[in-house]
């Protein structure tokens, strides 16, 4: 009874709260990191060094007027941000934060579910998220958000292909689709997959940038563009959900990269000292380093034009990912001979 219902519920609550708080503070971190790169300070007024800024932002979004465009499709207009946010959150069900630990004598695995098709579950969930963007643009009943939404979602589904192919390469190396098994395979190997398959990591990361609509692939959202982004007509709570979803997606991408390429909860070297630090702390550390990379790239690089973006995805990344699979498969066959 406890194992079936209470324990998972507690884990769900912890994970969701953790994610939502992290998302809020990730927004602040982005503003701060960008500011420091740009020789300025970022939010400083609300709380010491702006630490309470996210609370101010959330409050502001809550109390904003709820505007629905007159001829917008009311149900879809409200549903769209939810369709974007929910997949971002439920993707955390398979991400392993740590190994099985024993709490009060009970062995508790530090993940919500160990699906035997864990990696595919993430892909499935990501492909549902695309609907929110399309519907968000369409339900605003305006031509330009619709075009922006279609471009955005075309970008997403194009880069999804390359990303899924890097998953195949990792699955070939680890021999299992389960996220926990992939981490265990990295422990058995002794080397993280990032060093075994750096090309996969590169393709995955670039694809992840495109999937989350982050710079340099953020043309559909940029303010200086003519065709307005899909969330132009949104304000208040609904916009907050879109915003949250974008950052939650960033955390998902980083979390998956950590699990698949950087050994999840494993310490850098299997030594005694490192072993003292609990696994989930390593996981959080690695994920944050990857998130920092996201922020760093946004502050540094200009953005690609839409056709250049699509050309990069289709003509460069997908062939590269296919070649990568070929090479990984060939090496694996050669090694098992």
């Amino acid at each position: 009874m406890i194992d079936l219902i209470v324990l998972p519920l507690i884990k769900i609550v912890i994970v969701l709260t953790g994610i939502l708080v992290t998302v809020m503070y990730l927004v602040l971190l982005e503003r701060k990191v960008q500011a420091w790169v740009q020789v300025r300070l970022g939010p400083m007024r609300v709380g010491p060094h702006g630490v309470l800024q996210p609370i101010a932002d959330v409050l502001k979004l809550f109390i904003k007027e709820d505007i629905t465009p007159v001829r917008a499709d009311k149900w879809v207009y409200t549903l769209a941000p939810i369709i974007v946010l929910v997949p971002a959150l439920i993707a955390f069900a398979v991400i392993p934060f740590g190994p099985e630990v024993s709490i009060f004598g009970k062995p508790v695995p530090l993940y919500l579910a160990d699906l035997n098709i864990g990696v595919l579950y993430v892909v499935a969930v990501a492909s549902i998220g695309v609907y929110g963007i399309i519907l968000g643009g369409w339900s605003s009943n305006s031509k330009y958000p619709l075009l922006g939404a279609l471009r955005s979602s075309a970008q997403l589904i194009s880069y999804e292909l390359a990303v899924t192919m890097t998953f195949v390469a990792v699955i070939l190396a680890s021999g299992s689709l389960s996220m926990v098994q992939i981490v265990e395979a990295q422990r058995a190997n002794g080397v993280w997959f990032a060093f075994v398959q750096p090309v996969s990591l590169f393709i995955y990361f670039v694809g992840g940038l495109a999937e989350t609509n982050r710079a340099p692939f953020d043309l559909p959202e940029a303010e200086s563009e003519l065709v307005a982004g899909f969330h132009t007509e949104y304000s208040g709570m609904r916009f907050a959900l879109f915003f949250l979803a974008e950052y939650a997606n960033m955390i998902v991408v980083s979390g998956i990269a950590t699990t698949l390429f950087f050994g999840g909860w494993l310490p850098p070297f299997p030594s005694q000292i490192f072993g003292l630090v609990p696994g989930w702390i390593w996981f959080v550390l690695k994920t944050f380093l990857l998130l920092y990379l996201f922020l760093w790239i946004r502050a540094t690089l200009p953005r690609y034009r839409y056709d250049q973006l699509m050309r990069l995805g289709w003509k460069l990344l997908i062939p590269l990912a296919l070649a990568n699979i070929l090479v990984v498969a060939a090496v694996k066959v050669a090694l098992t001979r």
Binding site: Q38, R40, D218, S224, A299, L301, P302, R303
Partner: peptide, 16 residues
């Protein structure tokens, strides 16, 4: 010019 094309940091460096 750089900011319009997406490189926001250059704007602040130049203004500095």
């Amino acid at each position: 010019h750089a900011m319009d094309i997406g490189a926001v940091t250059v704007f602040l460096y130049c203004l500095r």
